[in-house]
């Protein structure tokens, strides 16, 4: 196989850049995290980045058709939890702002039209987004990054195969 010896190692060099791709993932500062689950109601859990609950944090909820005036206000409990039932007749992005001690965050919860029925909120569960998804691709990576990472893995496998074939 002419030229096979020259393939031995340097085609694997791009794989060394994979850790750099990992480092290219977004760098975020300290702050707060708000997660939520959907059941008969929306259940929020607000925590600081260090895992401490945002006990007593201010909660302000805005309905989709009025992003200026709060639809509801309240406070988290000692575990940073807060539960509410969005008005099913107001479909769209419900915004929930949670603030405490100079830290805060907003989550956007999409609610589908006609969620509530005579059977209750349960039938509308599937129309909620169960988790917040990163913007711009899977895991926060751009489509180009995903494509290149996939190509690098394939290229690395080919290079490795050629390396061992050449040793025989």
């Amino acid at each position: 196989m002419p030229g096979a010896k020259s393939i031995r190692w340097y085609y694997l060099l791009p794989l060394l850049l994979l850790p750099a791709l990992a480092l290219a993932a977004p760098v975020t500062a300290h702050g707060s995290n708000i997660s939520y689950t959907i059941g008969p109601a929306v259940a929020l859990v607000a925590q600081f980045d260090n895992g401490e609950p945002m006990a007593g944090a201010q909660v302000t909820i805005y309905a989709p058709d009025d992003p200026v005036n709060p639809w509801m206000t309240g406070t988290c409990d000692a575990e940073g939890r807060f539960t509410f039932m969005p008005d099913p007749d107001r479909p769209g992005n419900w915004e929930v702002q949670v603030r405490q001690s100079g830290h805060g965050d907003i989550v956007v919860i999409p609610v589908g039209a006609g969620m509530a029925t005579a059977a209750g909120m349960g039938e509308g569960v599937a129309r909620y987004a169960p988790v917040m998804q990163p913007v711009g691709g899977v895991g926060g990576y751009t489509p180009l990054q995903l494509l290149v990472m996939g190509a690098s893995v394939v290229w690395g496998c080919v290079g490795t195969a050629l390396f061992f074939i050449n040793r025989k």
Partner: peptide, 11 residues
């Protein structure tokens, strides 16, 4: 969709 800085990427 609304941008989440913690999730990374760009708006």
């Amino acid at each position: 969709p609304p941008f989440d800085a913690d999730a990374g990427g760009m708006p």
